[in-house]
Amino acid sequence: MPTTIPAAGTIPWRVAGATLEVALVHRPRYDDWSWPKGKLDPGEDWAAAATRETHEETGLTVRLGLPLPEARYTLLDRDGTPSDKVVRYWAARVTGGSGRLVNEIDDVAWLSHREAHDRLDYARDRDQLLALVRHHQAGTLDTWPLVVVRHAQAVPRSAWDGHDDTRRPLTRAGRERAGALVPVLAAYAPERVVSSPSVRCLETVAPFAGVAGMRVRERESLAEEGFADDPSRAPARLQRMLERARPAVLCTHGPVLPALLDVLRPLLEDAGAPERERFERSAATKLVKGEALVCHVAGAGPTARVVAVERHLP
């Protein structure tokens, strides 16, 4: 039976004047033009692999945007054994990097989408390009990520001998999940981290904030206790984040999440059925503990709409 080779990549894009441009890479080993991509490391998340491989091949640091159609094709090993390769792709905006070529790439070319269509060597790579162009034409390509996180597994209340429930920490498994979230959150390059001040929430996002050099902004409105005192404050906090339209992470608790998801649900009216279904599956469980729900938002304030949804589960 064929083995499966998981890989991930990006389609870096920019708008020059009125022209949509994308970045292709040239691999001298195969003498082909394609998208930056590569295999997942053992245990690596797809999104984290996409940004890592893009940086390793192009020297560019990117922020993941909309997920794009994946590619599936069969490869033959040297002995003729078939393997199924699955490549997941994201649209991506360049946020930094030297652009120095590394890792088997000898050229990176920024081309108009029409030029790129002609230069790509594989028909399967045009599926991602077509989706990217359609989003650009619809005004939904330029998005910013709002990542909603439910805190990771914490010491159960029944086993906590402290008097203050807000001090209840993560378990070992919870701390491991917090560490695993670091490269996942980094792939979306958030600029703000907002959290309930409860220890179990702070410990979930603090590892990422530390690596990213950010401070965690504590908001009592996102705590269970603050929400119980005034349920209107947490949705109001989320509305302000939608108005600011800055890439952000928000970490909170299960009891608070339905009120926040009620704010986001109407923004999915124009999204496709798969996106709405994915959102509702996440909402049905108030997110799994340690889950990161990535909402790709186009626009701000009253014009904000959620174009795509991703779930990153423990």
Rank of each mutant, 00 (worst) to 15 (best):
S83V: 08
H26Y: 12
T58D: 06
P183R: 05
R192G: 01
E218K: 13
P314W: 11
V294Q: 05
F208T: 03
A16V: 12
L261F: 15
Y73C: 03
S112T: 15
V307P: 06
V249R: 04
N103Q: 14
S221F: 00
E310T: 06
G162A: 01
D229Q: 00
V256N: 10
V297S: 02
D142E: 13
L202P: 04
R215S: 15
A187Y: 11
L267G: 04
T19N: 11
G179E: 15
P274F: 11
S282M: 06
C251D: 14
S112W: 14
S232Y: 00
L267F: 00
R150H: 07
E176D: 15
P67R: 09
P145K: 04
T4W: 12
R237K: 01
L313D: 04
A71Y: 10
W90E: 02
P183N: 10
E275L: 03
L170H: 06
L260I: 07
R265I: 01
A91G: 00
T171F: 13
V216A: 07
L238W: 12
V133N: 05
V256E: 14
E56W: 00
L268F: 08
R233T: 03
L141C: 01
V256A: 09
D125L: 05
H117N: 05
A92S: 03
W110H: 07
H151D: 09
R276V: 02
R175Y: 11
E176W: 07
A271N: 02
G226N: 05
E21W: 13
L264N: 09
R265T: 11
R78F: 15
L264D: 06
G301M: 03
G97L: 10
R72L: 10
G80K: 11
A71F: 00
